[in-house]
Structure formats: structure tokens, C-alpha cells
Amino acid sequence: MTNKDQQSSSLPQFPVLSTGVAPGVVFCCYPITNEPEVTVNSTWDDSNKSCTVLLECSSTSNRSVTYSWSVKNQTQSGTRLKVNIRPEDGETTVTCTISDHVSEKSASKPVNCSNITDSVPPDVEASTCPSSSSIIHKKVGDTVKLSSCLPTEGVTLATWKHRDTEVADKDLGVTTAFKDRFDLNRTDFSLTVNRLTLQDSGNFSFISDVNDKQRPTVVITLQVHEPITKEPDVTVNSTWDDSNKSCTVLVECRSTSDSVTYSWSVKNKTQSGSRLKVDIRPEDGETTVTCTISDHVSKKSASKPVKCSNNTDSVLPPGTCR
């Protein structure tokens, strides 16, 4: 929240007077207090190798407002926007602004384009002969294929264990308790686990003999995660520095998810951490700050538009018409 918003929220919400379009006509109304809501729907077009992004902006204001969009240094009016972007465009920020005669509010969304089939991590195969430190990260509902990457010739015993429980054997197949989700390939002895759950996390061990002589046990650690479902919450606090004629903006990002990594994107620069400090000037106009939270299998982003202004110039006394 900027100083302007903080000061405004601490004062009684007096109506603001504004001259109308007709001479001598004056409107009196309360300023807009809530940001608009922006929804995004992106579809991959394989023929053009691009994304068609449909955006819609809605407001909870109970009076007539005007909608406008800002994207790629272009503006457009209306509640809906259609834009085409490509993967090489990187992150594109779209901003919706609602306004009336006396006030305005904006909300931004970061949009990325990727081939949906490419953006879903493929099944991870232990095709590089995993060591004892091999870790595979997957999300709930995914499928994973576990391979020992050991030679199959002359194998007389091949058994998979999950933790201390035997789940599959080359002669007996998959244990009854796991048949609905586990599959054993009896040619290469790879184990496929479908519809992963959090309980599937842990060590999978492949125990095998060649000509009745035991080989080293292969251990693969599987970690199954709940994907991030909620965008982070971004709060803004801006302070005017009269000596430098600029604003010091303190931004904080919070998430309801556990064990996530925070990163910021502002002015084509990135920075890690849950907090960010940035200096902007009035002549910079609207600056968008974006916080991204991520884990091993998913990520979510949220953006805030920030403007710098001298508070003494930006706050109108109650009942004043400028």
C-alpha cells in the first residue's frame, strides 16, 4: 500500500467533488477503493507456436466505471482484452485500470506463454544409473518411472521395495496392495507409479541378483509435493523522500504454502527474498513489481503497480474541487 493509500484510508471517506462534462454540473461521489479483478485464460496454438491470451477485468464498484488496458506499451479500452504472445516474449505484464470522474484503481497480472505439453515435466527416468543421492521431485497426481539402469542379462532376482515394503518382484509381479497404481516392466525391470500421492514419498530400493550373486542395491528417493494453488499476497509501503524527490518503496510477499522460494521482478531486474526495497521517482510513471513463489514442481506470481508522488500534492482536502 502506498503512503497515499495509507493516508487516505486513515481519513474519513468524504465525497469528492468533480466538475461534470456539462458547464456548471458538479458530481459528488466517493472514490474507488477496491482494485479490479483480472482473470487470465491462455490457449496454446501449435500451428503458430504462440499463445492466445483472453483477459477479463471486473469491478466491485456499484457505480459506472471506465475500463482500460495497458500491455506492451499499448492501451485499449473495454472490460476484455485479447493478446497474442510467444514463449520468447518471456513474462508479459497486463494492467487493467478502472476509473471514474474522481479516482482510479489498477491491477496487474504477469502472463507467460508456453506449450502446455512442454510445460508439464515429463516422467523422470533414472536413466543415468542413479546413485544413493538421486532425488526425484514430482507433484500429486503425476506419474513417475523408476529405472535401475543396470544390465538385465542374467538377472535371477529383481525386487522393488518402497521403504521396507516389497512392492514388486520379477517373478510374482506387483504386490496385490499396489496393483491399482504400480506397474512392473518385466523386461527392463523398471517400476512405474501412477497417480502419485504424498504417501509415495520416500526411498525406492531395487535389489537384484545376477546368476544368484547380489549386485549393489540401487536407491532412488522420491519426493511428492502438493502444487502451489494460490497466488502470493503482495503488500506495498511507499515513503516520499523530499530531499531526493523520490519514493522509497518497501514491498513484501507472503504465501500460504510451505517451503517456497521467493523472487522479485522489477525494471527488468530480478532479486530473491520475500522483501524488496526499490527507489522510484514521479517521472518513472507506473512501475510494476512482481513476486513469484516456487517450489520443485510449481510456481505462482502476483504483481502490483506502484507510483511515486509527493503526498502533499496528491491528497485533496475534503470538499475541494481541483
Rank of each mutant, 00 (worst) to 15 (best):
K269D: 12
S147E: 11
V210R: 01
W240K: 01
L150G: 12
N84P: 00
A168I: 01
K179W: 05
R80T: 15
I228K: 10
T60N: 15
S50H: 10
K109V: 13
W240M: 01
N268P: 04
T192D: 12
I280H: 01
L198F: 07
T39I: 14
T248D: 03
Q13Y: 10
G173L: 14
P232K: 12
G173R: 14
P282S: 02
T75I: 04
T256F: 04
L196V: 14
T187D: 06
P318V: 03
S99D: 03
T165A: 09
G20W: 05
P318Y: 04
C28S: 10
T239W: 06
V16K: 03
H162L: 07
R281K: 11
G20Y: 09
F206C: 09
P122N: 07
F27M: 07
L172A: 13
L276Q: 05
I136Q: 11
K277V: 01
N112T: 10
W160N: 04
P110N: 06
K277Y: 01
V167A: 01
V16I: 09
D209V: 04
N194V: 00
V65I: 08
V25F: 08
T159N: 09
H101P: 08
T221S: 10
W160K: 01
L250T: 02
K138V: 09
N41C: 02
D118A: 11
R181P: 03
P130T: 00
D200C: 14
A168E: 01
N211K: 13
L250Q: 06
F27Y: 14
D200H: 14
D171L: 09
T159R: 14
S8L: 09
A126M: 02
L157Q: 07
T292L: 11
P305D: 13
T175P: 00
T128R: 12
N244I: 03
T117E: 15
R63W: 15
R63Q: 14
Q199D: 15
E286K: 05
T312L: 06
W69N: 03
S309D: 11
A302E: 14
T19E: 13
S255K: 11
C149E: 08
T175S: 09
K277L: 03
W69E: 00
C28W: 10
T143V: 11
L222K: 05
V120L: 13
D241L: 10
G285K: 01
W160F: 08
L316N: 11
L81G: 02
V111A: 02
G78E: 00
S294Y: 05
C28N: 12
V219D: 00
L150A: 14
T187K: 08
L157E: 06
E91M: 07
H137M: 10
P122W: 01
P305M: 09
V140F: 09
K170H: 08
T152K: 00
K307M: 03
T197H: 08
L172N: 15
V174P: 12
S68M: 08
T270G: 12
R195M: 13
F204Y: 15
E37M: 09
S42P: 02
S238T: 14
S114Y: 07
S265L: 09
G273N: 04
